[in-house]
């Protein structure tokens, strides 16, 4: 069950070329939220909006498609989307909240729904949770070092960053691409990521990521009744182009392989943590 439970897996991309233009891969998150907004399935979504510095996202509550478009593209650093989950239901006045998050953020969301001690009136207002695949994340200073020192690109000049095929790539406005092997980035990873046992956002309604499908497309898992409903309606309305996941390369085998790698590596970390000191271990949140 390294991919979690899901009803269907699809290869898909947004049908709207405007959305696709500046999206990371298939534009799934932006397109799905845009559809859900237009249909009234959600009345706003917590997404990673632009921050003060380049590629340093800040969580925003997007209530229009224009605001969603501002938030397109992956920034490989932490955006504390959960910090806005309550405010979205308060001064923003939302009743049906969408949220996008990494697997850990979706875990936080589900815990907040089942054990909502400090989350009054949040649990039943979550209308659509979209998860994104995540191997690990980088603190902003780590990302800055990778981009500016290792890739020799000024953060301001970067237009897109990407991880794939064993490389971390930075694309500039002038079309240059700078790449480093992924292994150089490991030391900059956030420590808290190394105990994470979820690669493909197992607890989301819909989760998506680039792994498993060709460039410009995304792998999509539809997991819950809510996810099935929204996805079905979006497909029906022609918001996505799809292909059978069995027909694309590299397909779910690669997703499974990477998920296994992440989980077994981090299981090992958890084991090491248990005997980290001398007759003393580090805390395990899953026990």
């Amino acid at each position: 069950m390294v991919l979690g439970s899901y009803k269907t897996a699809i290869c898909a991309r947004a049908a709207d070329p405007g959305i696709l233009a500046k999206s990371q891969d298939g534009g799934i998150v932006t397109q799905l939220f845009a559809f859900a907004l237009e249909e009234g399935i959600i009345d706003g979504a917590v997404v990673a909006g632009p921050g003060d510095e380049p590629f340093k996202p800040e969580p925003i509550v997007a209530t229009t498609v224009a605001e969603l478009l501002e938030a397109r593209g992956t920034r490989y650093t932490i955006c504390p989307n959960m910090s806005m989950i309550k405010e979205a239901t308060r001064t923003y006045g939302l009743d049906k909240v969408g949220i996008v998050g990494t697997p850990c953020q979706i875990q936080a969301l589900r815990k907040a729904q089942l054990y909502p001690m400090g989350m009054r009136s949040v649990p039943d207002k979550i209308a659509l949770a979209v998860g994104i695949f995540c191997m690990e994340n980088f603190p902003y200073q780590g990302l800055e070092t990778m981009v500016e020192d290792l890739c020799n690109v000024k953060m301001e000049s970067a237009v897109k960053m990407d991880i794939g095929k064993g490389k971390f790539s930075v694309y500039t406005e002038r079309g240059a691409v700078s790449q480093i092997p992924l292994k150089l980035t490991h030391k900059f990873e956030q420590g808290g990521c190394h105990v994470c046992l979820d690669y493909v956002a197992n607890l989301a309604d819909v989760s998506t990521g680039s792994v498993g499908t060709p460039d410009g497309w995304s792998t999509v898992f539809v997991r819950t009744k809510v996810g099935e409903d929204v996805w079905g309606r979006a497909i029906g309305a022609g918001y996505f182009e799809t292909k059978d996941i069995a027909d694309v390369k590299p397909g779910l085998d690669l997703v499974t392989k990477l998920a296994n790698e992440k989980i077994s590596k981090n299981q090992k970390t958890l084991e090491e943590r248990a005997t980290f000191g001398v007759n003393k271990g580090l805390r395990n949140p899953y026990l």
């Binding site: 706003g44 308060r90 001064t91 923003y92 006045g93 009054r120 009136s121």
Partner: peptide, 28 residues
């Protein structure tokens, strides 16, 4: 909840005013 953040022990009021104004959606 909407205006005060929480109805039981409101979090939005603060010395100097309020932390956050409401949006037009919240207002309606």
């Amino acid at each position: 909840e909407i205006v005060g953040g929480e109805p039981i022990h409101p979090s939005n009021p603060r010395v100097g005013g309020m932390y956050k104004n409401i949006t037009p959606r919240a207002k309606s």
